[in-house]
Amino acid sequence: MAAAHASPAAPALVLDRIGKTFTMHLQGGARLPVVRDVSFSVAPGECVVLGGPSGAGKSSVLKMIYGNYRCDQGAILVRDGSELVDAAAAEPRRIIRLRRQRVGYVSQFLRVIPRVSALAVVAQAAVAFGLPEGLAGARARDLLARLNLPERLWSLPPATFSGGEQQRVNIARGFVATHDILLLDEPTASLDAKNRAAVVDLIHERKRAGSAIVGIFHDDDVRERVADRIVDITRFAAAA
């Protein structure tokens, strides 16, 4: 029975020899190997930063964990309460449930939903996580304020915002719920120093609260302030 319960030190996320190759049928079936045998694990409260030059496959690894990309080999074990779920093999609705309850993701760009205000975009993510609407709205306002998004923009749909403003809505959306696992794909890329510092604070808070974080960060200073460990993805380069 004891084995069924997660001990505090048990990893929140384990990647076990995952691999990915794209087959481009429109280019005559060209095969584009991305990564092979990627293995690492992330403990609660730990921030693992993926290293390596662009094109090494860092974003692809995050997308495989989140389920946007299929995984050709290996397993992605996500702790879901007392259960370990292999996200690489799970049914779509199981992945949707993991995303709702366990795994948050800040993508490089906000996928804009027409007509929905910035505040509602953020609050909806908290409601999907299971927070009551009042609390979701309060948390959304708090995050947008901490990320210095001018209050006059909160009631507007983000479609017309600048890149940096959209990205801050996107970050607020990722942090408004308190998922056990948080995936960050260059969240600070288009931000100024003040907002980068705000994101670093948010990451530190989430680590203290016990979230396991996997991130990609362009800026050396952000990386050094948040990383507990750097996993160099070039180690897992797939042979062409």
């Binding site: 794209f22 997308k63 389920g67 946007n68 990309y69 299929r70 779509p92 992945i95 949707i96």
Partner: peptide, 8 residues
């Protein structure tokens, strides 16, 4: 999964 089929 919708985004998986569309992204990959």
């Amino acid at each position: 999964l919708t985004d998986q089929v569309l992204d990959d």
